[in-house]
């Protein structure tokens, strides 16, 4: 069985930052593997550990910089990686769900996985839609926001985490795309041995033409037109001073509200 797991390098914005046109200025960004994808990678690696016959391949859409992040997934047990990038992607402000779907569909066509795992969403642009869109495009079944997974023959038994502490139990026919929720497992830390091994694992670059696509594949009907810091709406009463003074003032307010009064 071949498991394809989609991973994304995402930028986190520092507490204080500045905008540069339609982007956060580069010096205020810190890159890391998307949090949800950590759990998807772990789930895929656990499947491979249960069964010798499972190969785990990761796919990323990202520039050369993202190889460092991809290596982390390889160090945790992913067998090999594919990195999709192209000059045509350099100038794209907003790679929308449709474009990502076209790129990943082409990768699925080339790799023919039996099973695809994605994260529920990426914590930079938070579209939360690529997994289900991909499933539809490649004619796989799917389930979104999965926090428990058991494979049983041709079926995946999953729990979907609904709102309000309710879980939905669902049978999903394979092949399928599952979007994985945080908390489904405990992502491992890469071992030193894993990190060493990752250095010799393959990260295969693929361009649009390698995927049988042209620049029209990354064209989008969505245009990013503005970016700004939301106005803070805080009308909180702030307690000033050192920690002792802040705590004393807060204690007074808490007592007024009846807190701690036995």
């Amino acid at each position: 069985m071949k498991v394809l797991v989609t991973v994304k390098e995402v930028a986190e914005v520092e507490e204080d930052f500045e905008l540069d046109g339609l982007h956060v200025a580069e010096q205020f960004l810190e890159y890391d593997l998307n949090e949800w994808d950590e759990y998807a990678v772990e789930e895929a690696v656990q499947l491979a550990e249960e069964d010798d016959d499972v190969e785990v391949v990761s796919v990323t859409i990202g520039p050369e910089r993202s190889e460092e992040t991809i290596r982390m997934a390889l160090a945790k047990g992913v067998d090999r990686a594919i990195r999709v990038w192209d000059d045509a992607l350099e100038d794209v402000d907003l790679l929308d769900v449709g474009a990502k779907t076209r790129l990943l569909s082409a990768v699925v066509e080339a790799e023919e996985p039996d099973f695809v795992l994605t994260g529920v969403q990426a914590n930079d642009d938070s579209f939360g839609a690529t997994g289900v869109s991909l499933a539809s495009a490649i004619d796989f079944e799917w389930a979104a926001v999965v926090n428990d997974l058991e494979l049983e023959g041709d079926v995946a038994n999953v729990r979907r985490e609904l709102e309000g502490g309710v879980e939905e139990l669902t049978e999903v026919d394979l092949p399928a795309v599952l979007s994985i929720q945080t908390g489904i497992n405990e992502p491992r830390y890469a071992s030193l041995r894993g990190i060493r091994q990752a250095q010799s694992k393959e990260i295969k670059p693929m361009s649009l033409s390698d995927l049988g696509l042209d620049a029209s594949a990354v064209e989008s009907d969505l245009e990013l037109t503005d970016m700004y810091e939301p106005e803070t709406e805080s009308d909180a009463v702030y307690f000033e001073g050192d920690a002792g003074e802040q705590a004393a003032e807060l204690a007074t307010v808490l007592r007024e509200k009846g807190v701690g009064a036995q």
């Binding site: 930052f17 956060v24 914590n123 969505l222 037109t225 970016m227 700004y228 810091e229």
Partner: peptide, 13 residues
């Protein structure tokens, strides 16, 4: 975007 630190507008063409 970015965990609510930034707002953006997207125009659909």
């Amino acid at each position: 975007m970015y965990a609510s630190k930034v707002e953006s507008t997207v125009e659909v063409d």
